[in-house]
Amino acid sequence: MRHHLPATTTLALAAILACSTDREATDTTTPGVALLTPGPVSDAGWNAGAYEGLQRIGDSLGLRISHQQTLTPAEFDEAFISYADDGYGLIFGHGFEYQDAASRVAAEYPEVTFVVSGGSRPSANVVALIFQLNEASYLAGMAAGAVTQSGVVGMVGGVEIPTAKGTFVAFEAGVKAVREDATVLETFIGSWDNVSAAKEAAAAQLREGADVLIHNVDAASFGFFQSVREARERGRVAWAFGMNRDQNDVAPDVIVGSAAIDYTGMFLRTAQAWRDGTLGEPVYSGLATGTVEFLPNPAREGLIPADALERIDRARQAIIAGTLEVPSIDFIEKEDPVSSQ
């Protein structure tokens, strides 16, 4: 036990240095904007998009920016508090899972604004960023219904949280709007980054006859796309959809299109409103605001038949006009049931 303490401390320090923050030198005169992501930003999806949004805020508004990846829920409170203490006035928690920690910390820091992506309990200084990604997922579902030959379509999700589940109920409705007799399979792998689990979950759906698959995972999508690619190499009909961010260039050979959020636009608008003092109500982003969209893959032009594309466009207009309601999972709680603590 001689060297016990110093050695362990050194290692722990190395670990702490290695695992996160690209925080710049503290300069408290420029207003600061910070971002917490639940996973690595190298996922070319949900977290990467938020990171790009943060960069845009820094570039366009000249604000001080910082990003941190939280590894476990135990770190959520700590990360919010450390940013608030460092003078960051606007802190994004990029995911439904940050809501509780944001509510707790916000009560202690009334002058700081907390934004929760997919947040469920807005309050005075906790703003919900609502991505109506279910609208784009519905259109993706219509495309899937037109592309599938087997009539079996699959969905591979991370954790069954309302924001993820919402995209799946809408996708399923979209598929059935085009192809009433379709079978829609659903699998959750219990993780956003587990590449091999996503691969095998997709493989299991392909075995059940699915030939068009959509995902709602983060870095695990790389394994999901690989599964579809391998099925094609074995001579199967198999297609995939991108989700959360425009992923058409992530796997251009297998992707039909992406149900995507324009994070840079959303984050920039939110930061502008915060700077101008007009941020308060939940910020909605859907087809109507142009910050959520279904984007067919330009590298696979012609894959979605022309008449299906027309139908999809009519549905898009109807959703914007409010005459077509897309199924969703409602998760905004009007009143905080357990008052703040």
């Binding site: 996973g39 690595p40 190298s42 996922d43 980054d193 587990n194 590449v195 091999s196 691969k199 870095a219 695990a220 790389f222 394994g223 690989q226 391998e230």
Partner: peptide, 8 residues
């Protein structure tokens, strides 16, 4: 998997 991702 034929690919790499952080935390894989």
């Amino acid at each position: 998997t034929g690919t790499f991702a952080e935390n894989m």
